[in-house]
Design a protein around this nucleic acid. Structure first.
Lengths: 341, 341
DNA sequence: ATAATCCGTGCACACGTGTGCGCAATCAAT
DNA sequence: ATTGATTGCGCACACGTGTGCACGGATTAT
């Protein structure tokens, strides 16, 4: 019933376990004859190396931990896909856990990962506060923050993200060029930092164009519901006698808003333009197809994992900020006549 | 630079490492005074138990491996969420890997999991053939198949899934009751078994109602593209002079089909009814909201993990087949006048 | 022929943890 | 006071693997 170990192989081959170990690892000090015989026996016995024992010996597990807020979020699904691909390609195993946007759970997960002696950790949407960061610093595990929601200006930590501010700027430029002069931003309180940067880039750009203060409203939900539902609810609180364009924190919120508009007969994009963020898969299949600020989601995950690998290899690294791009589809159009000032 | 071990604690407390181990594990043979002193020192030193060493000693890792075809698929996102929740709640860690619908990669991932000595494995959309099953049987790792795509009538394996045939029946009953007499099924070749059962339940039910053979067409794409795109393409190959209703393998394909219909001006549900499968989050926010056969996705993942835990605990278990339900929204409506025979 | 080199292998330890067994000390019972 | 039970702790081993060092035998150089 016990698993077969190199000791078992050694007994069959009538050598010591040291020789078996060396033979399996291709050490050239083992004669070819002995080596082939050992490999043969290992195969017959169905030997599978015990990575646990190896990890203990090597003081390295070839394992990394990934913590994301929500597995079912389409954005994170793509990010995880990228992380997993690079991880597997480099023969590293991946521990996965969800934090549900709860900072204390984020830290708890990290502690569990540390117990399991992961080589490194990737944290998505980190909201770790000072106390939690201090604890993390004591642990001394190489950590990469992915779209961090707080400013981790601590030495020894690394980050990958996108330029949220630039994304907000893109949205503002696009809608302004279409003639929109009364706009609203639908935000998410679950991701404070990226939410603020997106709305800030949006607002400052419009202000730079000379838009009066009162012509831009921002709405946030304190509810913990799904983004789709939040988008629907936020959209219902808007005064559409003035507003002609919505910029949303992400595509889910935008799609929720879109659904609200349909349900009350507001034509998109004829009467109202909507711009999302992320460019999730469904965005190009909504009706109308969603204009959005695209994030390279899979690349984000890949980059985070590659950065972590570089850190683990002791190579010099720099934090990476990827750039979002505007994808124009059919949910945005010129502002209705008579609305421009 | 080295991590602190119980040996280090022992030195500080001037006892043996055995005593420290027992104290930490709450063994009652250690006096309270010594025990509190040890806990104190452990805390000061920032001790974190080494799960790797524990695993080696206990011959048990408290770890399970999960392999799914695609992380970015909204269906699997929810399933993973369920698995992860139960896993974490029971203090088990979760290895995650993606197989990209490739049976050889499925097995490869399983072998890696085995090397890492996971206690059990959950395989989503398994397509393991006989040879691969034999290999898996040799490994002797408790395995739960989740929505298996092949018949694993091997002893020692367990399964969780939904009744795909019943789902097809529900769709047929719904559309027949609405008066539809020319229907089409849009399928997926990436999941042969569930695809066949859904289409079979659909077809046999309609045949039972007396629907002529030629009035039901089934379409499958051999492309490896996303489901959304596949739905779009399959929908474009249909003759809408006759067909008044589509039943789709899943919601993504249904949404792709819906988008095609919009783009060419086919009114849904006035001229064409569409029924999906899964009830992913976006389904109730599409335009029109999607009528679909709902799967309890999170519960599916939870059940799979619970089943695995029961197996690991040596409890008697039985395979579980959950039941899908019909969710009527606005993409299905009575057949247009004059189409019923 | 002797010494120097090289090749192939085993001994013994380390990684960090848990535990059966034994031993000394304390306590209660006769 | 001697015996018996109880308590508190350490010794030594095990889990499976990798590796520095030493050692014996074979080969080559002097």
């Amino acid at each position: 019933m016990r698993r077969v170990s190199i000791e078992d192989i050694a007994r069959h081959a009538e050598v010591s376990h040291s020789t078996v170990s060396r033979a399996l690892r291709g050490n050239k000090r083992i004669s070819l004859t002995v080596r082939t015989r050992i490999l043969q026996i290992a195969n017959e016995l169905g030997y599978t190396p015990n990575a646990i024992a190896q990890s203990l010996q090597q003081r390295q597990t070839n394992t990394t931990g990934l913590v994301v807020p929500d597995m079912a979020d389409p954005f994170w699904g793509e990010v995880v896909k990228g992380v997993e691909a690079v991880s597997m390609h480099n023969q590293k195993a991946l521990f996965l856990s969800a934090s549900q946007y709860d900072p204390s759970r984020q830290l708890a997960v990290i502690e569990v990962f540390h117990q399991r002696r992961v080589d490194g950790i990737i944290v998505g949407d980190s909201q770790l506060g000072d106390a939690q960061m201090n604890r993390l610093a004591r642990i001394k595990v190489p950590t990469v923050f992915l779209n961090s929601q707080v400013d981790h200006a601590y030495p020894g930590f690394h980050a990958v993200g996108i330029d949220n501010y630039a994304g907000g700027v893109l949205a503002a430029q696009h809608l302004w060029a279409l003639g929109h002069r009364h706009l609203a931003y639908l935000g998410s309180t679950k991701r404070p930092a990226s939410n603020q940067m997106r709305s800030l880039g949006f607002a400052e750009t419009l202000r730079g164009y000379g838009l009066p203060l009162g012509a831009l409203a921002t709405h946030h939900s304190t509810s913990l519901a799904d983004d789709l539902r939040i988008g629907y609810e936020l959209a219902s609180a808007i005064d559409y006698t003035q507003t002609t364009a919505l910029f949303c924190y992400n595509d889910s919120i935008a799609l929720g808003a879109l659904t609200y508009c349909r349900s009350v007969g507001i034509d998109v994009p004829q009467r109202l333009s909507i711009v999302g963020f992320d460019d999730v898969a469904i965005a190009q299949f909504s009706m109308p197809a969603l204009t959005t600020i695209a994030q390279p989601k899979v690349a984000l995950g890949e980059t985070a994992m590659q950065l972590l690998l570089a850190v683990l290899a002791g190579q010099p690294t720099i934090d990476t900020i990827l750039t979002p791009t505007l994808v124009v589809r059919h949910s945005s159009a010129p502002a209705p006549k008579g609305t421009a000032q």
